[in-house]
Amino acid sequence: MPSESTLKKILNFTKVEHTAFSLPLIFTGAWMGAGDRFPSVRVMLLIVVAAVGARVFGMSMNRVLDRHIDLLNPRTAGRELPSGKMSLALAIAVTLSGVLVYLLACAALNDWCLILSPIPLVPLLGYSLLKRFTPLCHFGIGLCLALAPLGAFVAAAGHPRFPVTVLLFSGFVFFWLSGADIIYAMMDIESDRRNHIHSLPARLGAGGAQRVAGAVHLLCWMILVGVVWLMGGGGPLAWTALFITAVFLLMMYIPAVPVPKRFFPISTLAGIAGALVPMVA
């Protein structure tokens, strides 16, 4: 058993508690896969385990690959690896544990989950590398989370025959998180430019990056409207959830709101509100 201090380091390193903020999106995928209801408790628990395992793998891999870059940025230099609080060997062990938990959960869910399980691992493994090559790196993390409701759909439905509504909802997740990550990267403009790290804020400046993020978020909200329309037009609850989603998305562009708060909790609340839309449509 790891010591209390080691366990605390691992929890800080993986930020596993942040999985809770993606669970509403994952649960919506499961809801749609089970035919507009929640699947069994067993399936839901396994979906959560798979999500936690994937989160631990993705976050840990990101921290391992970025440890030298993090050391150059005052905001991230205190993280476990660049500060020397955690050994690289322990970080790799945590990474491998995450992928093992994820694969075991997929195997326990159904054959299709196991067959398709390597697909999300590719963007989870590589999204942190994109910042070395392209300012479009923000869309890599969007892809990672966009696959989550699709995986939950397969877990609940037992097959990968996705209806258009599920694919559109995945598109909402993709553009929502990609836009939020552009906003988040505004905190590191000077550090990214100094260290030749690619990002849209570093390339376009804060104003240009916000305009791109705004267009991305407008698209994500329009996709969500399309989901409601395809599901029969929705009722008052669906349109209320759409309105709340729009309000939180707009709040991310209020200059008086500090950038860290625009990413969390405001962007998270926009995602949660958006996740409710198909469930109440």
Rank of each mutant, 00 (worst) to 15 (best):
L96N: 00
A107Y: 13
G126M: 15
C113S: 07
G171C: 07
L129S: 11
V94K: 12
L167S: 07
L124D: 01
R132F: 04
A152C: 12
P160G: 13
G151M: 12
S128H: 02
L103G: 00
F153Q: 06
A77P: 00
C113G: 01
I119F: 12
P120L: 11
G171M: 08
F139Q: 10
A91G: 11
V154M: 06
L168Y: 05
L167V: 13
R161M: 14
L116E: 03
L130R: 01
K85L: 07
S170I: 05
A155D: 00
G158Y: 05
L116V: 03
G158V: 07
M86T: 00
L130K: 06
R132G: 02
V164F: 02
P123D: 05
V173Y: 03
A146G: 01
F175W: 12
S83D: 11
F162S: 13
S83L: 14
P82E: 07
F139T: 10
L103I: 08
I141F: 02
T95V: 01
A89Y: 02
C137E: 03
V101E: 00
V99Y: 01
L116T: 03
C106P: 04
S87K: 10
F174I: 02
A105I: 10
A93V: 09
A146D: 03
C144Q: 11
F169E: 10
N110C: 10
S117T: 04
A77I: 10
F153I: 07
F169I: 13
V173R: 03
L145P: 00
L100Q: 03
D111H: 14
R132S: 01
L100I: 11
F162I: 14
P135I: 12
L121N: 02
L100G: 00
A155Q: 02
S170P: 01
V94F: 08
C144M: 12
L167C: 11
T76L: 08
L167K: 09
C106S: 12
S128V: 06
F153L: 09
V164T: 06
A105F: 05
T134G: 04
C144E: 10
I141N: 03
L116N: 03
L125C: 09
G84C: 07
L168H: 03
F162H: 14
F172Y: 14
F162D: 12
G171E: 06
G126E: 08
G151V: 02
F162E: 15
L109W: 10
A107N: 06
W112R: 13
R132I: 04
V154F: 05
T95H: 00
R75L: 11
P82L: 10
L129F: 15
L104P: 03
A156Y: 05
F169S: 13
R132M: 04
L168V: 01
F162Q: 14
S97A: 15
H159C: 11
P123R: 09
A91Y: 04
F172C: 04
S97K: 07
L96W: 04
G140M: 11
T76D: 03
H138G: 06
L129E: 08
F133W: 14
V164S: 05
L109A: 10
T165D: 08
P120H: 11
A89E: 09
F172E: 04
P120A: 09
L81I: 02
